[in-house]
């Protein structure tokens, strides 16, 4: 009877584990995909702002405002489920995230807060003319770069 109980417990544990493992792996996969999608959305909306600042495309207040608004929205996405423990470059080859993210979560969160502030500042001025947009762009790009500095693998 004793034996049967422990066998049962083992079987139950195996079952739980068996069910849990693929789910966790799936969470990790979709978290990596989702956070990369958020970055893509960022770049997609920074694009017109940089293009206007450089003079590659003509300044368009409405387009600039729409892009800046979108940036704010993307920056507000909750990051709680993005950074599944262990989903960094040492464990996966589909991410450029560094383990440092999990080693200093407070600093990582503060960099994200800086991005929100910078996106908000751009939203305030993006429709006010080219000079105003250009004035905020360096700060915005800087907030992206400050995080990439420490938390993304160097490849650029």
């Amino acid at each position: 009877m004793k034996i049967r109980l422990s066998t049962l417990a083992l079987a139950a544990a195996t079952l739980t584990l068996g069910a849990a493992l693929p789910a966790a792996a799936q969470d990790a996969d979709s978290a990596v995909e989702a956070r990369q999608s958020a970055m893509t959305l960022m770049a997609f909306n920074i694009g017109p702002l940089v293009g206007m600042a450089r003079g590659d495309i003509e300044y368009d207040a409405e387009l600039a405002q729409a892009a800046a608004d979108s940036l704010v929205h993307v920056s507000m996405i909750d990051h709680g489920r993005f950074w599944v423990e262990g989903t960094h470059i040492e464990n996966r080859d589909d991410t450029e995230a560094l383990p440092a993210i999990w080693e200093d979560p407070e600093d990582f969160a503060s960099k994200l807060a800086d991005l929100r502030d910078a996106a908000g500042a751009m939203q305030e001025v993006a429709g006010d003319g080219l000079a105003a947009l250009q004035g905020e762009l360096r700060n915005l790009g800087g907030s992206c770069g400050a995080c990439h500095d420490n938390y993304r693998v160097s490849d650029d």
Binding site: I46, R54, G141, G145, R152
Partner: peptide
């Protein structure tokens, strides 16, 4: 030249790491 002054790549990614500091 644009990248070296702004840090934005042609895909609007932003330089990080040592290159961010070089810029």
């Amino acid at each position: 030249a644009d990248y070296l002054s702004s840090g934005f790549t042609p895909e609007f990614d932003v330089a990080g790491g040592a290159m961010g500091e070089v810029i």
